[in-house]
């Protein structure tokens, strides 16, 4: 089994209506339930927008802190799933469902190691 991160790329410059948000939450919730039923689900989480973000950088044995996200880009990480499946094709099949449910691009990224193996 391999683990994959399915990361939702969110365009923060295009805010959505509450109605849209509710619809997407319902749709993505359904996909999460499907993942759980299939035994593929490991974790899911939605993130607050990047205005709430802080970056801590190491520098000469101490750290400095800056306000805002690491990269000031339009697309920010909006939320993610962690799934456990056999191969990339299975991960891509879930990513298909996630992308259609939340209406956003999904980056599929394998984890380096499967914990416990």
């Amino acid at each position: 089994m391999k683990q994959y991160l399915l990361a939702v790329q969110l365009d923060e410059s295009a805010p959505e209506s509450d109605e849209e948000t509710r619809r997407q939450m319902a749709a993505t919730g359904k996909v999460t339930d499907e993942m759980k039923a299939a035994g593929s689900w490991v974790f899911v989480g939605g993130l607050l927008p990047s205005h709430a973000s802080t970056v801590v950088r190491p520098s000469g044995g101490t750290t400095t802190m800056t306000d805002g996200p690491f990269a000031e880009t339009k697309e920010q990480l909006g939320g993610f799933w962690v799934i456990q499946v056999d191969d990339l094709d299975q991960a891509l099949a879930w990513a298909d469902k996630c992308a259609l449910a939340c209406g956003r691009p999904i980056e599929v990224r394998p984890f380096n190691i499967v914990p416990g193996e």
């Binding site: 391999k2 994959y4 056999d86 191969d87 990339l88 094709d89 991960a91 599929v108 394998p110």
Partner: peptide
């Protein structure tokens, strides 16, 4: 690394 399977779809 990405786990692209070696099989016929």
């Amino acid at each position: 690394d990405a786990g692209i399977p070696y099989r016929v779809p």
